[in-house]
Nucleic acid binder design. Structure first.
Lengths: 143, 143
DNA sequence: GTTGTAATTGATAATCATTTTCAAATATTT
DNA sequence: AAATATTTGAAAATGATTATCAATTACAAC
């Protein structure tokens, strides 16, 4: 899976006439080793611990490339931080976001997706992407 | 309906020990006269046309108050602009957002809401709010 | 109505995340 | 190794939002 994403990204790089660099390798390895939903800030700070020379702009630009290449996706939970989640081929999930502790759970629901399609159809609308987030308290925070 | 929202807001103002001011009245009247989903920027620019003396910060703060009082809700469609929509008691809707022309349509679907509740239950999660947006092309932009 | 007090306003500055700029460094092609 | 185009890191620019503060205004008490 890691390997597949590395290939996807290097193919993307090659196809775009971009270069394979030490920084991009480092950032990709790190990104693939992280849990989901890290913000750019978090990613940068954790990376910097091991690679102090890496610049914020480089991390920023590289994550954008990941998103462009399809191995990552930008998401926003309304806290003013852009987060990056891993994209797995053919899989889509939505989120439960705990507004107290920030925990994020994922879920999939085929019925909801189907209903979305029906709604879009009735409006003549063509869905490209969608965003479904449930905000509230996770089991722990409900005490 | 306008009247009800004016009352809701003036009650909120009173209950919080805040003051009723000319600017708040102007902004509220204008807000209630607008269509849905205006950004702060839009709201401010249009307001300024009739009331040049009104400050950006005042509009900003007043819209926050509207949201706090429950007559408006902040929404973000990922274009970096916070928008304000009208909140009607007991009514909730989700959005179809055209990524080409910016058109926004609204829909309601009780079945989806019920499924959301079931999902949340299965995680022991307590939903406070949710956000469902379908992004793509509206009927017009599909040509 | 006048006064006292606290909230509000408008202009401006501060903040914060994101994005751009640019000279120096690096990767790839020749 | 040289030529060329991309990339990097630091710093500055941007854009939206939020805070600051002196002057103004609303309102309750007199």
């Amino acid at each position: 899976m890691k390997r597949a994403k590395k290939k996807t990204f290097s193919d993307f790089i090659a196809q775009k006439g971009l270069k394979s660099t030490r920084q991009r390798d480092i950032i990709l390895d790190f990104f693939l080793s992280t849990s989901e939903h890290m913000s750019l800030e978090e990613l940068y700070l954790k990376l910097r611990a091991k690679h102090p020379a890496i610049g914020y702009a480089t991390v920023y630009r590289t994550l954008k490339l990941f998103a462009e290449s399809g191995i990552a996706r930008e998401i926003q939970f309304g806290d003013g931080q852009t987060r990056y989640e891993h994209v797995t081929e053919g899989e889509h999930h939505d989120h439960l976001v705990c507004t107290r502790c920030g925990a994020i759970a994922e879920f999939e629901n085929a019925t909801i997706e189907k209903l979305q399609d029906e709604i879009a159809d009735s409006y003549g609308f063509l869905i490209k992407t969608h965003k479904l987030e449930l905000y509230g308290l996770c089991a722990k925070c409900r005490k």
